[in-house]
Amino acid sequence: MSARYSIAALALAVAAAGTVYQLKYSVREREGSLWRLRAAVQEEVWRIRTLEADLAFLTRPERLALQAPQLGMVPVTPEALARLEDIPRVDQIPVAVIGGVTPVSAVPVPRPARR
């Protein structure tokens, strides 16, 4: 009995050692790839930062102001602001039709002409 057990235990020990070796090896490998990935991420972060800085530089207000006339941009005026309440709701605009007043939702809404 004890011999059979001994052999089984030996086999188990060898298998365990093998597994541990495998595990350690793969952990080391994974650590290596983790390190490489982190370095790559860091590199990418620097690249993104450079691009962000470039974008921020190209969108300097004074540069945009110079290009505004060509782009047809004008400064916002207080009159350009409106509250949502100031805009009449479409379904509350009365529309005169033959035979009385009907809410606009009952008639097809014409598309605004393109200017």
């Binding site: 983790l34 390190w35 982190r38 370095a39 860091q42 620097w46 930062r49 450079t50 962000e52 800085a53 974008l55 921020a56 969108t59």
Partner: peptide, 28 residues
């Protein structure tokens, strides 16, 4: 990983305006 373990004392946070526009950043 060593790239993050060593906290760089020279590194500075980016500075943004209230809407997120970049005002200052570190570049390598």
């Amino acid at each position: 990983a060593p790239a993050q373990a060593a906290v760089n004392p020279r590194a500075r946070p980016p500075i943004l305006d209230r809407n997120g526009t970049l005002l200052a950043t570190d570049l390598k």
